[in-house]
Design a binder for these strands. Structure first.
Lengths: 227, 227
DNA sequence: CGACCATTTGATATGGATCAAGCGATGTGG
DNA sequence: CCACATCGCTTGATCCATATCAAATGGTCG
């Protein structure tokens, strides 16, 4: 059961990223990011690696991020995609369990974990926020398990609905990630992802005007597939 | 991609369970269970259902428990097995995301969640314990994802190693759960689980003296499979 | 001893992986 | 500005792992 995943994919580590400003720049949002700095990352650059100390928290301002693990045999499993507004990098232990890299150019608010933890000890809101972030993460992972036991059609349908829910521009999804990323997220090959999409297009469930843009034509059909 | 899972399986809800004693009965262990009551459950009885309020925490004293979801199409996914010493039922939200039922007759310490939360607000140890339980849970789920993208051989090998690590009686595993349970945990069919086990037996990696007892003969071979 | 249920084993079907080629968009150098 | 190389994606042909269907075996409990 070898996938071509990481073999075909390139991960490019380049020092990148410039600090911008001590960000009270973004007005609304939780207390956590208040203490952070806005950083810029170029696409495909590593944010942190698996097993590195988890000293920072990250909140996506713009762009998209993937977390992943590469298994010994070269397969890559993507754990999650993070989009604007999403926070990632909060670990329950002291080390990152996944690696993280940008999919596109990104602006990300980076906050020292120690500062957040310290704040949480005094401030109930911050503590609640950390708890809720962990909750969301656990929920996401549990849902992911349910996706991984389904058929290819169901997995792709789940993925499309998930992306639609999160970006929600009236049924038009702009995908920041490649087919390979989607495949590694869903535990499929790019060929299967591609074929499934054309299949859905032929059944008038979606339209694929360009490979990175998908229009949902029949959401209920997707939900039905989603089983 | 229909599995026979829940169709073949019976879930029996019977009111069951008798309260035993306000348990300081078990001396060692975290602060949490100190406040609990020891309850007895017969095998295959429901402890709680999906979407029910998560008002209690549970710690297995003896026996084994499974948590699961039944999908709309009847497939059942087992989320985890809990063995003596394991705590379950701690949710990040207010509702249980899985159902829980006993696999065998069980003794379980049941603790009111509100009491635990209240304690955690005053006592750092209790708070740390809750956090660590959540951490372990997240870790478990993430590992499970990695298992589900592997081949049947790899999944079964992972499962055996996991069980060996947790019960650890010198390479002899006593399985409390049926093949169907294992299949639904690993996202396989009972036939595939069974065939894989006989395959491992033929390659002298394991012995299967009875269907519920498995002897590890060659752990490193399993680790190699585990990829 | 006989019925029942769990497990194993066998035969076949099939969904998705693999191998391979074609296609379209994007970018680069001449 | 165009020709060509490159890269990501799609499409096609074939293969294989696992599901499905079916039957045999074995262990348990009345």
């Amino acid at each position: 059961m070898l996938t071509q995943s990481a073999i075909r994919t390139g991960s490019f580590k380049q020092p990148m990223a410039s600090i911008r400003l001590p960000a009270a720049a973004t007005p609304q949002g939780g207390t956590i990011e208040m203490m952070g700095a806005l950083m810029t990352f170029t696409r495909d650059s590593e944010i942190y690696g698996e097993n590195e100390p988890a000293d920072y928290l990250y909140k996506v301002v713009s762009g998209a991020v993937r977390t992943y693990k590469v298994l010994v045999d070269g397969r890559r499993q993507i754990g999650a995609f993070y989009l604007p507004g999403d926070t990632f990098g909060l670990e329950v232990g002291d080390l990152h369990t996944f690696s993280a890299e940008t999919i596109t150019n990104c602006k990300i608010i980076v906050t020292k974990r120690s500062a957040v933890v310290a704040l949480a000890e005094r401030d109930n809101d911050a503590a609640r926020e950390m708890w809720s972030l962990t909750a969301r993460e656990l929920q996401r992972v549990q849902d992911h398990i349910l996706v991984l036991i389904k058929s290819a059609q169901e997995r792709v349908a789940s993925f499309l609905l998930e992306m639609a829910d999160r970006t929600a521009d009236a049924g038009v999804i702009e995908l920041p990630m490649s087919r390979q990323d989607i495949a590694d997220y869903l535990g499929l090959t790019i060929e299967t992802v591609s074929r499934t999409l054309t299949q859905l297009e032929k059944s008038a469930t979606i339209e694929v005007p360009t490979s990175r843009r998908i229009v949902l034509r029949n959401r209920s059909a997707l939900h039905r597939l989603n089983a």
